[in-house]
């Protein structure tokens, strides 16, 4: 067990435990806060995978953007009297059975498949390479995503503003 392994298990446990709470807690606000820890854990895993830029983007976009958006969603769709906003659950038994089987199947696929491992050379920073790739090989996708974001922005605004007839 070296530091790398310890860190990995630490982050894996943070991620999975908080994800577990996200999907089981009945309180919506708690759920959102556990999601925060999940995102941080995943960001830690990215760092261990030598993807520093993705980790930063993960924190900025997911924590800074999407999570805030979700919190707004929670608050705008409930009559807020206290933080104790409950969310009901349905088909608990059948769902846990189903996802349990799914998890078993997926995990066994992951473990028993003979992956071709060929470690890539680790760069001290990936930002420069990623930036160059974004504006060369991936420039079309990059521009398209820009347009997509614009459309999403306009679409979201127009959908949310629509008045009830």
């Amino acid at each position: 067990m070296n530091y790398y392994d310890i860190l990995f298990y630490l982050f894996a446990i943070i991620t999975l435990a908080s994800a577990w709470f996200v999907v089981t807690t009945r309180n919506v606000i708690y759920s959102a806060f556990f999601l925060l820890f999940t995102f941080f854990g995943v960001a830690g895993i990215y760092v261990l995978l030598a993807a520093d830029f993705i980790a930063v983007v993960q924190i900025m976009v997911y924590v800074g953007g999407i999570l805030i958006l979700l919190l707004f969603g929670v608050m705008l769709t409930n009559k807020i009297t206290n933080v104790d906003i409950k969310s009901g659950t349905a088909n608990l038994l059948s769902a846990s059975l189903l996802t349990g089987v799914l998890m078993g199947a997926l995990v066994s696929v992951m473990i028993f498949t003979d992956w071709k491992v060929e470690p890539a050379e680790i760069q001290t920073t990936t930002i420069k390479t990623l930036g160059t790739m974004l504006l060369t090989d991936y420039v079309l996708f990059f521009e398209l995503l820009g347009i997509l974001l614009l459309i999403a922005l306009i679409g979201a605004a127009s959908i949310a503003r629509r008045e009830k007839e």
């Binding site: 991620t15 999975l16 999907v23 996802t99």
Partner: peptide, 8 residues
């Protein structure tokens, strides 16, 4: 880890 997260 990813498989478990997916199932959750």
């Amino acid at each position: 880890v990813s498989a478990i997260l997916f199932s959750l």
